[in-house]
Write a protein that binds this DNA or RNA. Structure first.
Lengths: 212, 212
DNA sequence: CACAAAATACCCCATTTGAGTGATTGATTT
DNA sequence: AAATCAATCACTCAAATGGGGTATTTTGTG
């Protein structure tokens, strides 16, 4: 199997070199580049085309989060693993929203870092335990969607199209039924969700993550 | 340190007993109960008060997902780790929404299962790699809020009320402006967001997490 | 089979909404 | 000083929507 090629973007020289040595010194991994900031890294990434990038957040100049956005915009297939000291919600979620596929704290043991590189390369999403919990907590916080469970499958189907912004007529055409029927269904949906308009119903559906 | 007490809910007798032996046979872990379905387990859980529950999904009678909801409703401090063969989005997300704090596939190595029990007990959220990726993909799917950034503050204010489901008149009353003005603003908002109706605008606003 | 629930379709009617057009004021920029 | 833009208000008009009904056909379940 081909080695996994890795680029490290990290401003702390010691830690950067340590990572490079760890990666180079382990069979199956290659460190094809190290950079102290995103500005230097970005032009090279397109040539290096690594499998995985280890990215710090607290970089001078462009932050690691901005860096993730920039890299993912042109090279979405590169997997980016955040490797940082920050574990506050904002940094974590912003990184993941930006397109990172994993998030490790720097205190992670070297062996675990290598394991995570393999895991992210194999389509996984390695996260430090506390980080993973933060992510799942986001799920638990979202509304219980008790109400939407009462909807029949046809009603859910129609609600789905409502969320897409279709009109009665458009929904009717899509489902090959009369707009009158759509109205009838909508009336039932409104009653079950305790709303009185398309937009209220659509917002409720989205907020309750009926359609993720 | 006290042993971690575990309950196993799993209908396959072989797998259930295998898990029980694995847990009992490892120092630091105690298996305080095994059940073949939720109906039998629920009344006992309150007495056993385990630290962690290993939960299957495909159970006879009440599904594991329903079981999670029931347990979390009365005993939210118990950590529930799904241990199942299913890796389709619906089962995964429903489990996590229901309140599970981890999700492993049954093919996971025994050592990894024990590791996961410790991790979930320490406030982590162990997930099989592909499962974790599914969860993060949900983040990546949420659209970037590029468009909504162009909105003026007044427009955002009005969009916010739209999301709450108010009509033109109601928005006007709330902001002490004429409904005519609301219409004018809405028209500008529609143009900027490239939509043509209240519901589309509201959905876009919610999906772009403009108003969390 | 019988019954209930869901899906289908249609009617009336008042209100809401979306689109087009135009105008005034005040603040900011140029 | 001129230009620009956000915010405000007004008008028209056709189309879409929401609330009130009623009725037939499918479907699923006991």
């Amino acid at each position: 199997m081909k080695d996994i090629s890795v680029v490290v973007i990290e401003d702390n020289e010691k830690f950067r070199n340590g990572l490079a040595q760890l990666i180079e010194g382990t069979p199956g991994y290659r460190c094809v580049g190290t950079f102290s900031d995103c500005e230097k890294a970005l032009p090279e990434i397109c040539n290096l085309l690594p499998d995985v990038i280890l990215m710090d957040i607290g970089l001078p100049g462009m932050s690691g989060i901005e860096g993730v956005k920039a890299i993912k915009a042109c090279l979405p297939e590169i997997e980016i693993l955040m490797l940082t000291i920050y574990e506050d919600d904002a940094k974590v979620f912003d990184s993941l929203y930006a397109g990172a596929s994993g998030y490790l704290l720097k205190k992670t043991a070297p062996a675990k870092i290598l394991e995570a590189i393999t895991e992210i390369h194999d389509g996984g999403s390695p996260m430090s335990p506390k980080i993973a919990r933060k992510v799942l907590d986001l799920f638990h916080k979202t509304a219980p969607a008790e109400e939407t469970e009462q909807l029949s499958s046809r009603e859910k189907e129609i609600l789905q199209l409502l969320v897409e912004g279709l009109s009665y007529k458009a929904i009717g055409k899509r489902l090959f039924i009369s707009p009158h029927t759509v109205r009838a269904h909508l009336k039932n949906i409104y009653e079950k969700l305790h709303v009185h308009s398309k937009s209220e119903a659509a917002v409720k559906a989205v907020k309750q993550r009926l359609f993720p």
